[in-house]
Amino acid sequence: MRSSRFTALLLGVLTPGVLTLGALALGALALVCFLSTATSAEERFLVLASTTSTDNSGLFDHILPLFEEETGIAVRVVARGTGQALGLGRDGDADLLLVHDRSAELRFIAEGYGVARREVMYNDFVIVGPQSDPVRIKGMDDVVEALTKIAAVRALFISRGDDSGTHRAELRFWDEAAIDVDAASGSWYLEAGAGMGATLNVAAGKPAYTMSDRGTWLSFENRGTLELMIEGDPRLFNPYGVMLINPERHPHVKAEDGLAFIEWITSEAGQAAIASFKINGERLFFPNAAPAE
């Protein structure tokens, strides 16, 4: 009984049914193809959470192929602000971190989230601003004094506002200048809540002053009327550290390959690769790894 009813039903909906089923089967087939290609790429790779300033500069495109060639390990870079990158590491969503906020990194290690931290390189921050330089800070060698002048005349300043290493460094300078930028947020002090490149886009569009790492600034194409205002204050020094996510806390972390990366980037070959990365003939990052203990 049941089967004959089923046959009748099948015949009744033959044309629409066959077409619908055909479409569904095709869809499912396509899906299987897509998904299978998605999962077939089982190569050897590490996930490196790093900062937008490093990634946007193009450094990784320069050095990572060298590492892959030497070891056969691909490195997948996820670029976020330092705060978010540390968050990814804490959750175990990356194998390695390459970030720039030394005190936060040391806290991260002390809390047991990271291990095997090494200094890798440094670059420096610069203050950029509109060519017209309404506050007359160009060429000053004291960054805190310059920021004090900007605040005094309430000249537009764009902050990253994204809890990145650059943002945290900038906040430290305002602190030193004893200026409460939270109170000024939304008036002359604007928080972009975005990566370095996006923040430079805002500063170029206003135009306004902002603080950038030198690497992103040098490789940034849409400067408009922005010019370099301040550089060279020793406080603008910006060191980067690399570390492995603690495999005891997150057992899936690829410890062996991760340590190989740390070993390589702090080795002579890795350090030379960093030193040879230049934009318009200018070196962006300066290797400073101490020899292994």
Binding site: R76, G195, G197, N201, A204, F220, E221
Partner: peptide
């Protein structure tokens, strides 16, 4: 996806990245 080059970079995230770099 994380906008990882050659792995998870798609049209929209590439556009976003190039905008951030100022390559309008």
């Amino acid at each position: 996806g994380g906008n990882i080059a050659h792995v998870t970079r798609v049209m929209t995230t590439a556009i976003s990245l190039e905008t951030l770099k100022g390559n309008l």
